[in-house]
Design a protein around this nucleic acid. Structure first.
Lengths: 317, 317
DNA sequence: TTGTATAATGAGCAAATACTCACCAAATGC
DNA sequence: GCATTTGGTGAGTATTTGCTCATTATACAA
């Protein structure tokens, strides 16, 4: 096992080297092969490994006119603090490709501050992808806190572990929340929230300087349903009550107002604010999320947005 | 003017889009051409424009990133054929840990050649550690030759027997030098060097395709002193004469020029060259060796270097 | 308008890259 | 200890990319 991990790391080292030579230096794979003393095919494999293992990251650093324009319009219409639009792939206009790089760039902007910041996180696929794109940096001055529990009801950890990965990357103090996002009953929620550590975490979350959240739609493909936190029946009840979206498990209607009762009675996540002084950045894209995103902006549940071109076009309709 | 800048920006926009599709999405240039409605050649031009205009940034996200950067800088500054930097252990930044693996990898790169090569060796702790890391391989096509004697003055063998161990590992013809590295007098050196076998070995060393040497500092902890080849008085005389380092017992000053007289009059080792066509790779690390390494590069006594991150940082200061 | 300079284009080809397959070696499991 | 799986390798080949060159479009001055 030591041997395996040893050979594994040197292989990744070589891949990193190859990736560096290929993309940064601009060598051909033949040259890389010679420099590394391997066959050309192996050099090719190393380069492609560097890409597939994300040892090499690509980032677009150019304001594309159409995207800027859309961002400007959305920022004005929904009175946002920030709005970032990434180009869409014409073949798959609603895919979340590219969002991750933009999200990471925004996070790095915050992290670069020397002042100590409290950064709060929701969860979800998009957010996780952003964190994967972060460049490792030493930021012990900051604190990361989770807005919602990362446990399944059986105590196992959830799939999209955003906060721990984030803290690992930047090496900061972090507070994951050791709860399921939904309690079984309103009463159980009270019990959870009376635990000292949980109270402490919620207090920290309250003071967050910046918040990054994913946005979930409500429907047959809702993340909450897919991840097994709620049932089909509950989705139907929520839909009937006018629910269109969800942020950190708090379900809201088309005006961004929280649904009263139903699953919201059991949500253990930190409360949502509409505090205009701090950035609450939603990160989401997709045709089926348009309503949820628009509602979140209307209700000022978020005051910042990172999405893509195609989603942005829909939001303005 | 406005028109020009207008068309210019849309061209760069397209380039950004193309670069994004190519690197982030992973499309082929044919697909990009279709999506953007241009010819394949134009798509290619847009992608290459995105790279040359730095619209797309590449970043290596791996612990060795810093090492590659340092290697690049050292290679440029000292005009080296190769430079390999291994990560430092933050707990012991100047330890030679890791150097051995890198050195072995470099040696294996040479050994993998099918052509018959003559490989020359100095001696020392770092070099010995490298050889220990070599994986056994059958390389009867190569020849190993020692650049300096491996005898104590009393005829016993020295501690760091690099060449025999090397030859054992790869099973090749080898020529250790049955002499002490320093004769007692200049006259004795002449006598040694007139011996037929010694002459032969020196001739082979002269033709070496690749050379690996350790680098010794001059001072109270100098390897030559510790190993008992020279005295404290001689070290003091050398230091007074400006000596900062030593390669295969040849002592040189801060510009990498050999010290005239003193111990150099009695050195039996093969002469040092500054031949740019063959790799002469120095393998060394440590705070106390920084001056010696830098001088060796300045004087082109070596044109390749394997060291570690912390030492590399110092070399650039 | 016309000539001229500049830049963009597409075709064709050479080079570089990616993929598949058959094979081998080390690790894993029975 | 032996079969099996896994992961890596080189050869061969298909695909993709980059380059050159002749041609065409565009801008601008006379």
């Amino acid at each position: 096992m030591a041997g395996k991990s040893e050979s594994e790391t040197t292989r990744l080292d070589d891949a990193a080297r190859a990736g560096w030579l290929y993309y940064v230096v601009g060598d051909t794979q033949d040259e890389i092969a010679r420099k590394l003393g391997v066959s050309r095919q192996s050099a090719q494999r190393l380069v492609s490994l560097a890409v597939s293992e994300q040892l090499i990251k690509f980032r677009l650093d150019h304001p594309i006119a159409r995207c800027m324009e859309l961002a400007q319009m959305i920022r004005a219409q929904f009175d946002l603090r920030m709005c970032e639009i990434v180009p869409s792939d014409p073949a798959a206009p609603f895919s979340i490709a590219g969002i991750a790089q933009a999200g990471a760039a925004e996070m790095e902007r915050v992290l670069r501050s020397d002042e100590s910041k409290i950064i709060a996180f929701g969860t979800g696929r998009a957010l996780r992808a952003c964190v994967e794109q972060l460049r490792p940096m030493e930021c012990p001055q900051h604190t990361a806190v989770s807005l919602l529990g990362n446990m399944m009801l059986d105590g196992s950890a959830t799939a999209y572990n955003v906060i721990i990965r984030f803290a690992e990357r930047i090496n900061c103090r972090h507070f994951p929340m050791p709860l399921p996002p939904l309690a079984r009953t309103a009463h159980e929620r009270e019990l959870f929230q009376q635990q000292e550590p949980v109270k402490n975490i919620l207090e920290i979350a309250e003071k967050a300087d910046v918040t990054f959240v994913g946005i979930g739609e409500i429907g047959e493909a809702a993340p909450m349903l897919v991840d097994g936190f709620i049932t089909h029946d509950e989705i139907r009840a929520l839909t009937a009550a006018g629910a269109v979206g969800e942020i950190t498990s708090w379900v809201y209607d088309k005006n961004g107002e929280l649904i009263r009762g139903l699953t919201n009675d059991r949500v253990t996540s930190a409360p949502l604010h509409a505090d205009p002084d701090h950035l609450r950045c939603g990160i989401a894209a997709g045709r089926q999320k348009v309503k949820a995103i628009r509602a979140a902006m209307k209700g000022r549940l978020i005051n910042g947005l990172i999405t893509n071109e195609a989603t942005a076009e829909q939001l303005l309709k």
